[in-house]
Design a protein around this nucleic acid. Structure first.
Length: 272
DNA sequence: AGCGGAACCTGTCGGC
DNA sequence: TGCCGACAGGTTCCGC
C-alpha cells in the first residue's frame, strides 16, 4: 500500500486517537513482524508505556514513547493500523494488538506479512532512518537539491524518484503521477533533465503529494485509514493503472512499461 | 557505483 | 469449476 501520503494519513488519524494513551497490554499474533525481538520481550518493553507522539519520516511511522523508546513501523505493501473501540477476537491478518486505556484497541494488520515493527533506543543511531533522503514536503526540497541528486546519474528518473536515500516517501504510484504532472518521460535519465525540468519536477512533487494528502491517500486495493475507510485520491489519478485508456490531456493511450520490475504508466505524447 | 534479479508472503484476477 | 501464471502500493540482499 502506502507511500508518503498514505502514511501521513495514518499518522494524522493516529495522532487524534492514540496520543497520550497508555499501552496496557500487547499481544503478538505473528512473530516475523517484530524484528528482532521475541514477542514476549517486545510486549514486555511496550506495556506500561505512554504514546507521547506519532510522527512520520519517509514511509516510516514513528511512535515516541515514555519511558524513552521509539516504535518504528513500516507498512510495506499491505500493512494497516486500525483503531477501534470494539473488542473482538483477532482476525486473520491481525499481527499485533495494542490495548490502550479508555478501552481502545490499536491493531496492526498486514495481509502479506512484509510490514515491520521495531523498537529502537535512539533514532540517531538507527541506520534505516538516518540513511533516508530529504522530506519532499519540507523546505529541503529545492531544484538545486534535485540537481545535486540527479544530474550525474544515468539512471531513469522514475527510479531516481523512488530512491529513498535521495527523497524519502515517493513510491510507484506517485512517481508515475508526478512525472505526468511534470510532463517528463519516466525513461529520461537524471543527467538528461534541464534546469527548467528540475524546477517543474520540484513543483510537481509538492503538488501531487499535497493533493494526495488532502484526499486522504490512494486506496487501490488495500489501503485504509485508521477508521477503515478508504482514501479518495484513486479518483484523481491520471496515469497510474490507466493502461490503454486515453490520456487526460491528449487522448493518446496511456502506456504501461516495466522499470526496475515495477509498472510505470505514462503518456508518450505529453511526456517527453 | 549501480544494475538486474530474486526473495520475503498472501491474495486476486484473468485466461484457458 | 479448477488450475496456473501474472500481478500487487516496498525493501533488501546477492552477484555481476
Amino acid at each position: 500500500m502506502p507511500e508518503l501520503p498514505e502514511v501521513e494519513t495514518v499518522v494524522r488519524g493516529l495522532q487524534k486517537l492514540v496520543v497520550s494513551q497508555k499501552i496496557t497490554s500487547v499481544q503478538v499474533f505473528r512473530n516475523n513482524a517484530i524484528t528482532p525481538l521475541s514477542p514476549e520481550i517486545f510486549a514486555q518493553r511496550l506495556t506500561g508505556s505512554t504514546i507521547e507522539a506519532v510522527t512520520r519520516r519517509g514511509k516510516f511511522l514513528i511512535f515516541q514513547l515514555n519511558p524513552r523508546l521509539w516504535l518504528l513501523a513500516h507498512l510495506r505493501m499491505t500493512g494497516k493500523f486500525i483503531v477501534t473501540s470494539l473488542l473482538s477476537t483477532p482476525q486473520k491478518h491481525h499481527r499485533a494488538w495494542f490495548q490502550l486505556d479508555h478501552t481502545q484497541l490499536m491493531i496492526f494488520d498486514d495481509m502479506r506479512c512484509f510490514g515491520t515493527l521495531e523498537l529502537v533506543e535512539s533514532l540517531d543511531d538507527t541506520k534505516k532512518i538516518q540513511q533516508l533522503g530529504i522530506e519532499p514536503l519540507s523546505s529541503q526540497l529545492t531544484w538545486n537539491h534535485l540537481k545535486d541528486c540527479f544530474n550525474q546519474s544515468s539512471t531513469a528518473i522514475k527510479n531516481l524518484l523512488m530512491d529513498q536515500t535521495k527523497i524519502a516517501g515517493i513510491g510507484n504510484i506517485y512517481a508515475s503521477e508526478i512525472l505526468f504532472e511534470a510532463r517528463i518521460s519516466p525513461l529520461r535519465t537524471g543527467s538528461q533533465l534541464s534546469i527548467q525540468e528540475l524546477k517543474k519536477l520540484k513543483k510537481s512533487i509538492q503538488k501531487i503529494l499535497n493533493a494526495a494528502i488532502d484526499k486522504n491517500g490512494t486506496s487501490i486495493s488495500d489501503f485504509r485509514k485508521v477508521d477503515e475507510k478508504t482514501g479518495e485520491f484513486q479518483n484523481f489519478l491520471k496515469v497510474y493503472g490507466k493502461n490503454e485508456l486515453p490520456c487526460f490531456h491528449c487522448s493518446t493511450p496511456i502506456q504501461r512499461i516495466i522499470q526496475q520490475q515495477r509498472s510505470s504508466f505514462f503518456c508518450s505524447s505529453c511526456q517527453q
